[in-house]
């Protein structure tokens, strides 16, 4: 990923094999208050994001902070996206069980219950 500055613009090239497009959208959604955001694909596996600051120029001593913020935000939203995708099924199962009208969908208990003498439920 590379980030460059130009007046009140921030130019970001993102490798989509590292940050997927959903994460990129969710991340820069939150920048819409202070920046106007455009997202375009620039090749098969990269995306170009341009942030135009709405008020005033970006000062040079702010640049490092912004790079940190963008890096961290992308990582965070990528993390969130991973959680959402990996847990989609279990979340559906949880909600389905929560609102099911009977207990036939309940899980069986794990493991053994007997003592050495022998006991069956």
């Amino acid at each position: 990923m590379d980030i460059s500055f130009n007046n009140n613009e921030i130019h970001i090239n993102i490798d989509t094999s590292i940050f997927n497009i959903d994460a990129i959208h969710k991340c820069f959604y939150w920048y819409g208050d202070d920046y106007s955001v455009t997202i375009n694909s620039s090749s098969d596996n990269s995306v170009f994001v341009m942030l135009k600051q709405k008020n005033g120029k970006i000062k040079s001593d702010e640049e490092d902070k912004l790079i940190d913020k963008i890096n961290n935000d992308l990582l965070d939203f990528q993390t969130r996206d991973t959680v959402t995708k990996e847990t989609k099924n279990i979340r559906d199962l949880l909600v389905a069980k929560a609102f099911a009208h009977s207990d036939i969908y309940d899980e069986d208990p794990p493991g053994e219950i007997s003592d050495p003498v022998g006991f069956k439920v």
Partner: peptide, 13 residues
Amino acid sequence: IPELIDIQATRYR
């Protein structure tokens, strides 16, 4: 599927 998923479902409900 976590062992206590039914307890979680109860909590969600």
